[in-house]
Amino acid sequence: MGLTVLLVDDSLFMRNMLRGILEGEGYEIVAEAVDGMDAVRKYREFRPDVTTMDIVMPVKNGIEALREIRILDAKACVVMCSAVGQESLVNAAHEAGACDFIIKPFNPERVREVIKRVAGA
């Protein structure tokens, strides 16, 4: 059975792209969330193996959502998706307990590699 994934991004375009890449690898996308608050709610409901988390989102940003998810589940595996030039956010995410990073725009190879690695860990 494939690993379960929660996709968090306010852009449907981005979610679809990620879905395309990950489903091609046999992962099961159990849910999608459109902002940080939605992400925490969906995480609580679905307990996915891996969460991909956009950083810049309305309502609650990805780093705040990451912190809350880590409080819910200290072992949560969350991969942050950040744009080039957001190094300071990457640091904050690292401190908040992110498992790994994918830099946007998505390079499908890199996405596969990162998800495979964190899922295997």
Binding site: D10, S11, F13, M14, M17, V56, A83, K104, P105, F106
Partner: peptide, 10 residues
């Protein structure tokens, strides 16, 4: 603007 940038780059 940030979202637009990300999508266009992709």
């Amino acid at each position: 603007a940030h979202s637009l940038k990300g999508m266009a780059a992709s």
